[in-house]
Computed example of a mutant assay.
Amino acid sequence: MAAITYEELQVPVSGGHLTVLHWPATVRPQGDGPAPTVLALHGITSNAMSWAGVAHHLGGRVTLVAPDLRGRAGSSDLPGPYGIAVHADDAVALSRALGLGDVILAGHSMGAFVAAVAAVRHPGHFRSLLLVDGGVGFPVPEGLTSDELVTAVIGPAMDRLKTTFPDRDAYRAFWRGHPAFASSWEPWTEAHIQRDLVGTEPQLRSSCRIDAVRTDGADALGEETTAAVHRLAVPAELLWAERGLLDEPQALYDDERLKAAGIGDTKIRTRMVPGTNHYTLLLGDDGARTVAGSLLAATGAADPDGS
């Protein structure tokens, strides 16, 4: 399959501009209408390039638009306030600014919670949702401050935000040593981590603003955010990873946790993706292919691999 190229856009939102990656459809759709569109939202310490593997497996059948969320990568200078509702409104603002229609809204991890809130705050704006290992509440420790709660869930990621790296090779080595990537490292994985770096050697650091991560993390775990999936008026699919953030056996979701979340009477259908963890469900080859397949099914576009 040929490489899928993208362009970088600046899209006006409240307080400034979001940096947005745009992978245009290159395959003429059946009929006279435009190619279907997916708006894709990344996780709490991630960036838009996390969707590059999905773009690869979409094979030009779908237009894919992915912003760097406020406080990250190309949008790191966009000021607060932060929070899930703010990101949700940003997603709708960029959708309107780009004139996107008949949109499938996708989100990974925190981005899935943003997607659910966006669909509730802006009813009728999105055709359906794809939630990738997020969006549905999961058990969290009790009796902790908001900072402690966020650290308990994404502790190693918070540590990374406070660390400086002497060069890009050191940052690559940090990620190559992460247990989630022990058996999976793709070209788009490399592009994703390198997009995160800012500063100059020997003081490179993550572009993610710690204040944004703290605010968004506490907000994502709050009752108002986790209630959104129970109020969805559009169909949604949850793809959940078999393993956790550190490739541990206990994933964010399992059958028991999903049953306890009470989503059986919602519009959400669920599917576990074997052999994936929280990161590789989006950044690994098998995971990206599965996510792309769900999006192709949701948009009605043909599978680029013909399977």
Rank of each mutant, 00 (worst) to 15 (best):
L78P: 13
G262F: 05
L69H: 12
A251N: 06
I154A: 08
T299C: 09
V120A: 07
Q203C: 07
P123K: 07
A55S: 05
L221V: 09
L221I: 12
A298H: 09
H192W: 14
G60F: 02
S207I: 00
P187I: 12
N47Q: 15
A241C: 04
H42Y: 05
A292C: 05
I4P: 03
A302N: 04
W185N: 04
V86P: 00
A298Y: 09
R269V: 15
V86Q: 13
R205I: 07
T145P: 06
G31H: 03
S95V: 01
K267N: 14
D285L: 04
H87M: 02
G16N: 08
G134L: 04
A261P: 03
L246S: 04
A218G: 15
G284S: 01
A251G: 15
T299P: 03
G306N: 13
Y253A: 06
A288M: 08
G60V: 07
A191Y: 05
Q203M: 13
A91W: 11
P29M: 06
R127D: 13
L130M: 01
A73G: 10
R96D: 11
L221Q: 15
G107P: 00
L18D: 13
A35L: 04
D90I: 00
D32H: 15
L282D: 01
A97S: 14
A182C: 04
D254V: 08
Q250K: 15
A170R: 09
G262N: 02
A288K: 10
G80T: 07
D247E: 08
S14M: 10
H57P: 08
L131K: 05
R72N: 04
L69Y: 03
A157Q: 12
G111S: 06
G111E: 01
P139D: 03
T215G: 02
R70I: 00
G135W: 11
I268K: 12
G53L: 01
V150I: 10
F113D: 11
A52P: 06
I210R: 14
T215C: 02
G16F: 11
G107K: 09
A173S: 08
L64S: 10
S50A: 15
Y253N: 03
T225M: 10
Y6Q: 15
A260R: 15
E142K: 14
G284Y: 00
G300S: 01
R168S: 13
L282T: 14
H42N: 10
I268H: 10
H278T: 12
T163S: 05
A212P: 06
L39V: 09
G124C: 01
T280R: 09
Y279S: 14
S207W: 04
L221A: 14
G101V: 14
T26K: 00
R70V: 06
L296I: 13
R172M: 10
A118L: 10
G33C: 12
T226Y: 06
V273N: 11
G135A: 11
P304N: 12
A52K: 12
E224A: 15
R209S: 06
P81C: 11
V13K: 03
R195N: 05
L105R: 06
K162I: 07
L197A: 10
R205W: 03
P67Y: 05
A55Q: 07
A301F: 02
A66Q: 08
V86D: 02
D255R: 07
H22T: 05
A218E: 14
E190R: 13
Q194L: 15
L9C: 03
T299F: 12
K162F: 06
G143H: 11
T189N: 13
T280F: 01
G262E: 09
A93H: 07
P36V: 08
V213D: 06
Y171E: 09
